[in-house]
Amino acid sequence: MKTYHYLKNGILEAYLLGLTTEKEKEEVEKLLTTDADVLAELNELETSMEEYFLRNAVPPPPSVREAIELRINETEIKKWDDVPYSHSNPKSAESNSSEPSYINVEFANTHIRVHKNWRAAFIAIFILSKVFLIFGLYYYFKSSSQEQEIIRLKAAVQQTAPLPRSLTP
């Protein structure tokens, strides 16, 4: 009964045209997995809808195909630019790929490309290194001056201390 209702109430047509609400869409998709009659009707409907839209088809100019080809290539290049190194590593490449996904880059250069977040990290490392250097120098000079003070005090103590009795005249 429910199947008949679905076949005749226009919900399949609305689903094919993208006019259903999310709830109706989910309902139809669920039914399609369980009801063979509804699936068969949908396939038939899809064919006739394709015929209908093909009757109203308009051939686009040839430049559109070239533009699509170009856009796909650009997308692929952009995708490669966004892929982190580990993804281009053949060990972690997509499992369904029959060959490793290498990017052929000429090796005779001394530059590397890193993510822009590294800039902040490099600045932080640079500032921290300067801070540590200043602290290091400060404590170095402080300890060396203290050592000199200790030597000076020792010398002063030795000079002021009384001589042993055996050494006195």
């Binding site: 686009p60 699509i68 290539n73 029959s98 052929n104 000429e106």
Partner: peptide, 30 residues
């Protein structure tokens, strides 16, 4: 960066897009 040869997967993807366009492009444009 030298010219990168498209991988077989990329060629298949591109062909998929274009074959769908060849089949449904006029309908979609309509």
């Amino acid at each position: 960066q030298v010219y990168r040869k498209p991988t077989s997967q990329e060629i298949i993807r591109q062909a998929d897009h274009l074959s769908l366009y060849d089949r449904y492009g006029s309908m979609a444009y309509g």
